[in-house]
Computed example of a mutant assay.
Amino acid sequence: MTQSSRDMSRRRLLLGGAALGGGALLTACTSNEAKPNDAQIKPAEGGASAGNAAPGTKVVIGFSAPAADHGWIAAITNNAKAQAGAYSDVELKTVEAGADAAAQRAALSTLIGQKPNVIVLLPHDGKELNAFGLESMAAGIPVVNLDRAFPDARAYRTQIKGDNYGMGVAAATYIIAQMKAKGVSSPIIGEIPGIDSLELTQERSKGFADTLGAAGFKVQRRVPAEFTVDTGQRAASQLLQAVPRMDALWNHDDDQGIGVLAAANQAGRTEFLMIGGAGSKKAMEDIQSDKTPLKATVTYSPSMASSAISLARLIGQGKGMADLVELQVPKEIVLASETITKENAGTYLKLGF
């Protein structure tokens, strides 16, 4: 597994709440071996009546994201390019992120020399690229910080990211409701997070534990994986061997969830219900078919990249969001985590990455 995968902050589906005035986008791309969806964008509309979407001052947007070595990251880049292509007044200049934060920083420094109007950046690591954000902002080039947060608010003009704590809350809320419906008062609950050293993983687990605790529940066994199929299978095998009976399991990531389900199938374990994380197309198809323990997934959408391009365009043109009273794009946007079940999977399937 590459370092860019290990540093991965991750996903979610539907831009929570409001459609962005310049065009909020709902996405999809390659995940696992499922047929990829097309990028979901809001097409730009012509004419004076189109408001913010009408062609305006040309905006050159610089863009950088880690290599597309994972379904969600592939969707990030795909969505950014597709949304930029939907606007006749946007030129997208992409630079390679390289293998690590240092390589990405070097490429971005070159990009500053080209003087784009705005830069959209999904960093290898938000803390390590914070200095670049400060440099770009000081040079008069606004930065839209995508997903992996810069710790310094001065390093970005706008930050759009997912709510990792909210993912844990959503997963726990679903489990609590299901356990109460089944009359299970003391459920045995397992958890398979992603890389434990990542802040995003810790936030997800905290949201999960806090919400379970409020209902009088707790996690009995927690075995981390690394956001990949093989590590998901290995972690699940270890967990299933340690817990002979289980009522519910939250797996943080739908890609590693393929391995989790493989381990459950190999062990002949079907007594528990499983909740995924991210909102991949494959996971939604499994939920819809209702033939595996996977009964729901909580989302973390790569649509944020499409929306980041729309926001960058508005910033470059000095506009605000059409549905808001304020004259400028907000400083921060946090996406909501949707819960996908058999009942609504058909509606959300086209948005799976």
Rank of each mutant, 00 (worst) to 15 (best):
L122F: 05
R157Q: 15
V118Q: 03
L146V: 12
L122G: 01
G133F: 00
D152G: 07
G168E: 05
M179Q: 14
L146E: 04
A139C: 10
N130C: 09
T158W: 00
N164C: 07
V118A: 07
Q178F: 08
S185Q: 15
G168R: 01
Q159T: 04
V118K: 00
A155I: 04
H124Y: 09
I176A: 12
I119S: 03
V144N: 06
V169G: 02
P142V: 05
T158H: 12
A139W: 08
G183I: 10
P123Q: 05
D147F: 04
G190I: 11
G133E: 03
L134F: 05
K180Q: 15
P142D: 13
F132C: 06
F150C: 06
A155D: 04
E128P: 02
A138N: 13
G166E: 04
A170I: 03
Y156I: 09
G126R: 11
P116E: 03
A153S: 15
M179I: 11
N117T: 13
V143A: 05
I112A: 09
S136A: 15
I175M: 13
K127D: 14
A172E: 02
A149C: 08
Q159V: 02
S136E: 07
H124N: 08
V118G: 02
G162L: 05
A177I: 08
M167P: 00
A155G: 11
P142L: 11
K115M: 08
I189T: 08
V118N: 02
D152P: 07
R148Y: 03
T173C: 06
A181I: 13
I175S: 04
I175V: 14
F150N: 10
E191H: 14
K182Q: 14
L146N: 04
E128W: 00
V143H: 03
F150S: 01
E191R: 13
A172M: 05
I176L: 10
N117E: 07
N145L: 06
V184T: 14
I176M: 11
N145H: 08
P151D: 15
K180T: 13
H124K: 05
G126D: 08
R154T: 12
V184P: 05
P151Y: 11
N117D: 15
I119M: 10
N145Y: 06
G166T: 05
S186A: 15
K115W: 10
G113P: 02
E191I: 06
M137W: 09
G113A: 12
G190V: 11
G190A: 12
G183R: 11
A153T: 15
P116S: 05
G113Y: 08
